[in-house]
Design a binder for these strands. Structure first.
Lengths: 226, 226
DNA sequence: CCCTTGAGGTATACAGCGTAAGCTTATGAT
DNA sequence: ATCATAAGCTTACGCTGTATACCTCAAGGG
């Protein structure tokens, strides 16, 4: 009896916490995909019954919100003390990197309606960087909207590509070209055959092109009234 | 007996079809939200048992794919015979419009992995427009990636805004400003108070700004090697 | 005209889901 | 040692997608 107690105290169950739940859920989603993340399976991973999770999380929606905010907290904020373009580029690259590490996050749009503290902190920091660089409030809003649209849109497209590695591109391209008569979509076929399928093309490399397009455009407009 | 048969023939049950199922599903999702679209409820709307739907649709995933392709078919293709910038602007505006009419479509990223014919047709047409305007294959890929990232990203942000009408902006802004001490996110607070909450600001108006930013940038780079 | 046939629709059933309600157990303060 | 409280467990309910087997009925060939 007493020995049992001491044994138990020797290895005390370290209790769950909201943070442990969120981190486990993120790891699960990264690994097996968000669509197969269920409360029961997550409980199993944590050595716990499903209902125990509800002591640390209001419900699944709340858990997803929390997961998204953790993801936001992983993104670098724009560093201070450097040119605004450099700062914006660094935070954009970091944001894309994080979003591609957690591809499920971009799809949880419900969660973005209730932004968590990390999300708000991120927004504030970006706007602050732009304002400090001399952007008017109006231009800062324009700039933020344009940049974030591009970043999230790129992450969304990257995630929904039907291939993940370079090797897969060839297979997918081939099977696509077989499916349609190749005359139905001539330009698409040309693009695939002539370029995508050759050389070391990777979609990820496209990110910098569009990002610089937006940043250069913003620089030109910075001081114009709009 | 015979009269019964003739009566039945007078109003023959017009059978379901894949198209009718898809259109009803789209209407349902537009109306009640994609998250509450279930096979049983959809069957109910169509006056049919849930399992009947499976005669016209392989499974729910296939149905969602089909819905997304219908949405793509609603987007205007870039018109021929006008300046490429005009054509691109028109198709971009149409795409955003369609995506904001069917806000659920942008989140169905799984479906974009198996693009339907309307989706492929759209891609082909856009690439064709750029190539005809003198873009190299490489530059056309760059341009397409940049434009679509911006369009989808904007649609995604627009959808995940916590307000839908102008009136709601004020309420949301007020409740947000109350929630955080206002010193935590000073720039965010400033932006909300000084600009967003005033005047006739609407997020939708931001679309044109970023779009022209990208289009102008592309024009400048069109003939450069990359 | 009858009979077959196959497509369209139904009935039933099952495993898995989120989670409400009430219970037991472990922990930390008194 | 006691006891309040937090952590975890059990059970149960209504909902989901869909496999399987069945029924019904209009169309076409004999």
């Amino acid at each position: 009896m007493i020995s049992l107690q001491t044994e138990r105290r020797a290895q005390p169950r370290n209790p769950l916490s909201r943070e442990r739940v969120l981190l486990a859920a993120i790891a699960f989603a990264d690994d097996k995909g968000i669509e197969s993340l269920s409360m029961r399976k997550l409980g199993q991973v944590l050595g716990v019954e499903a209902m125990s999770l509800y002591k640390h999380v209001a419900n699944k929606e709340d858990m997803l919100d929390g997961m998204v905010d953790v993801v936001f907290s992983e993104m670098d904020l724009p560093p201070q003390g450097v040119h605004w373009k450099t700062a914006m580029r660094l935070r954009a690259v970091s944001a894309r990197e994080v979003l591609s590490l957690h591809p499920w996050a971009i799809g949880l749009t419900d969660s973005r309606m209730k932004p968590g503290p990390a999300n708000l902190r991120h927004h504030d920091s970006v706007i602050g960087c732009l304002r400090a660089a001399g952007f008017s409030i109006e231009m800062a809003i324009h700039a933020y909207s344009a940049l974030d649209s591009y970043i999230y849109g790129f992450a969304l497209q990257e995630q929904s590509l039907p291939f993940e590695t370079r090797d897969e591109i060839g297979e997918v391209a081939e099977s696509m070209l077989q499916q349609f008569p190749a005359d139905d979509y001539p330009y698409l076929a040309e693009t695939i055959v002539e370029h995508i399928n050759k050389s070391g093309w990777e979609y990820g490399d496209e990110f910098a092109f569009g990002l610089d397009l937006v940043l250069d455009g913003l620089e030109r407009l910075r001081d114009k009234p709009s």
